[in-house]
């Protein structure tokens, strides 16, 4: 399988604190196409920092992040904006939809920034909203949707532009059990059907139990990297 992301000797030190914080220490990982990976670990273990660095939101202090044969650690901010837009999908803990846009417009938004053709964009947005079970909510604004529905729109948004991989930072943390399972089922199905690489940071046991690969970070370093057979 094709390697989507490869990190080598990845380190991140925050120096703007009283004492320097080593958030990541020499992390060497590879993520293959179509993997469904959970990054787990206690609070402060570096999960979010890891996602931020491989997502091009933050720069590593040392090391490399190679995506599609490009080391994004050396990119300028303006190049990273474009790179994120074209290669990476994001799902955040607090849904983070644009409140003044409808579900359909939210899902289309990234494709719009990518300047995709209008008809294709609308077709794909509709398709994604159908996939996440919200075909009857196309013209509804986020404030009229439940938390679970908003997060499903966020997933549709992240996947609609067919990114190389999707980073999800604790996507089920704010959801009730039913909504969380519902969301996980959708993401697993999309992972299988669209062969999209999904990487989660999570504390949520429900997510961990569904992941085929679980990486445990402790104090910024990889403690365990385990593979599981799941249905």
């Amino acid at each position: 399988m094709k390697t989507v992301i490869k990190t080598s000797e990845l380190s991140k030190v925050y120096t703007n604190t009283a004492v320097p914080v080593h958030a990541l220490k020499n992390v060497n990982l590879e993520f293959k196409e179509g993997e469904f990976t959970a990054i787990v670990g206690p609070s402060g273990s570096g999960k979010t920092t890891f996602l931020n660095v491989i997502g091009g939101l933050d720069k590593p202090t040392e090391g490399h992040v190679v995506i599609d044969d490009v080391d994004i650690a050396t990119m300028k901010e303006s190049q990273l904006f474009d790179f994120r837009l074209r290669h990476i999908g994001f799902v955040f803990q607090a849904y983070n939809l644009i409140p003044v846009l409808t579900a359909m417009e939210n899902v289309s938004f990234i494709m719009l920034l990518q300047k995709k053709e209008k008809k294709e964009m609308q077709r794909r947005a509709k398709e994604m909203l159908e996939q996440v079970g919200l075909s009857d909510k196309l013209d509804v604004r986020p404030s009229q949707l439940s938390g679970g529905q908003q997060q499903r729109v966020a997933v549709a948004r992240a996947l609609a532009s067919k990114p190389d991989f999707v980073l999800a930072d604790e996507p089920t943390a704010n959801l009730d059990t039913e909504s969380a399972f519902n969301l996980l089922d959708i993401m697993l199905r999309l992972n299988r059907e669209e062969n999209i690489t999904l990487i989660f940071s999570t504390h949520d046991q429900r997510v961990i139990e569904k992941a085929r690969r679980v990486i445990t970070l402790v104090d910024g370093a990889v403690d365990k990297d385990e593979y599981f057979e799941r249905n």
Binding site: D82, A94, N96
Partner: peptide, 16 residues
């Protein structure tokens, strides 16, 4: 501000 951070994260340019 949070919304701005998210919009920038998902690919909206600062100039936009």
């Amino acid at each position: 501000l949070r919304e701005f951070g998210i919009l920038l994260s998902i690919g909206l340019k600062r100039s936009q």
